[in-house]
Amino acid sequence: MVFLFNLALSLELLATGGFIVFIIKQQKWVFQYSYNILIMGFICHSISIGCQYYELGTMPILELKSGLSFFSWSIVAVYILLQIKFKLRVLGSFVAPFVTTLMISAFFFPWRTQESINPIFNSLWLIFHVIIIFIGDAFFAIAFLTSIMYLIQEHHIKKKILGLFYTRLPSLATLDAINTFSLNCGFPLLSIGIFIGSIYSQYAFGKYWQWDPKEVWALISWLFYAALIHQRITVGWQGRRAAIMSIICFCILMFSFIVVGILFGGYHSFKSLGA
């Protein structure tokens, strides 16, 4: 399991290197190799997570290490889906470094030693709650990355600097389309995930909603994303403004995932999950 995790990390590092070479050199075969390596890394990672699940008997997201690792796994999964749908090679050059950074941060946290887990984690509801929310978050991560790409490209076109990035990045319309698609997938998933969580909470704790810090922050991020999607539909927000908003939303989401998970306590915090 540890070996598989490390192998996945090394493969992703290698793929990231390849994707960076690709964005500079623009050669198709470099992309193809990097993409294949990333998929191999993804397979190793999946097996490693599967082993952890088998050992724990529940989703391995009880501490920050496995949380980060599972998040990076979800992003690669969503990336592969989007790559099949949009066939946008340069996207990998942004996604791979991002997921590898997550993996490296996960690498520096210690492996969980304690064996016993709280029996309430042994539930199918919980598994769905976790997987759906993480996949939703992964879509938001892709929306975040394409928003960054959008802002870079938009800046270059607006300021008429038609250099390296201008030629390598795709058209604004393409980036906006991926951004919209990711939001439209991510938002329902996040909503369903929160909903399932509250049902499970009723079943496990007798309360739908406990105003736990994580719940509050999840609600805040949900509201921000709802606002963004509302503006997109009603006023036709698109392009630059939507990209900036998407970045802000993702920062709030990350805050609720990492900072709230570590510092704010509550039953969602990594501290109480591991206990």
């Binding site: 490209q153 076109i157 201008y166 795709p170 058209s171 604004l172 319309a173 393409t174 389309a177």
Partner: peptide, 9 residues
Amino acid sequence: ELAKKIFYT
């Protein structure tokens, strides 16, 4: 070419 970078097609 510029138009294609904005509109894709």
